[in-house]
Design a binder for these strands. Sequence first.
DNA 1: TTTGTTTATTGCAATATTACGATTAATAAA
DNA 2: TTTATTAATCGTAATATTGCAATAAACAAA
Lengths: 110, 110
Amino acid sequence: MGLAKTEIFTEKQNKIALFAKAFSHPARVAILQHLFKINTCICGDLVEVIGLAQPTISQHLKELKLLGLIKGSIEGTSVCYCIDLENWTKMKAVMNKFLNQDLEINNSCC
Amino acid sequence: MGLAKTEIFTEKQNKIALFAKAFSHPARVAILQHLFKINTCICGDLVEVIGLAQPTISQHLKELKLLGLIKGSIEGTSVCYCIDLENWTKMKAVMNKFLNQDLEINNSCC
DNA sequence: TTTGTTTATTGCAATATTACGATTAATAAA
DNA sequence: TTTATTAATCGTAATATTGCAATAAACAAA
């Protein structure tokens, strides 16, 4: 049906899924990498760097902003985006705990 | 258009996106967590534990298997799934490098 | 005010994802 | 062989995602 049954899962599981969804498109991965690289924030040159149309980039930025991973400040006519480091760190804590499950285990397998 | 322009992005960016997509649904998160918890593999009781229909779980398992994060071995009429620890470790390396970008940066922001 | 620049929004088309009923396939047990 | 059990596959409906052209909004500069 295209809609996930989120009510079945824990808050944490849904949170992990939401963060992961942010990274599940290469354009958003590229945007974040570029924002990290050009740490003196940037603006609309993302459109040039990435190679997608302006509305498409704008939409991806919106999703990342909604999740809190980036923030944008208006600077004249252009908008200056950058990573929200505080939230990035929080996100990392959640994701790392999920990814490092293998370390908490005395393993044996089939 | 619903289809991502993967050819525009690097192999690594696409790889990150593919791994992230695996975690972008709470059911797959829950499946992986359960497989880690019950390290003596398991089979169809995932259906009961998760609370989705059998074909739905089977489909999610297929995606995780295709990515190499889990493996299944036939055991009579049932199938025994478990984490593929080698590939999980490889995946972690890729994702950790992406997530830890903030550490490689002398930060200043707007 | 008009013009240009930059970003957001709207509307739409194409494709992907999620979910499940019905069915099939494979094997074990009777 | 028949029956039961388990998992995969097929088909389909509902919703989500991706991408962009067209347009709007916001502001700076002339």
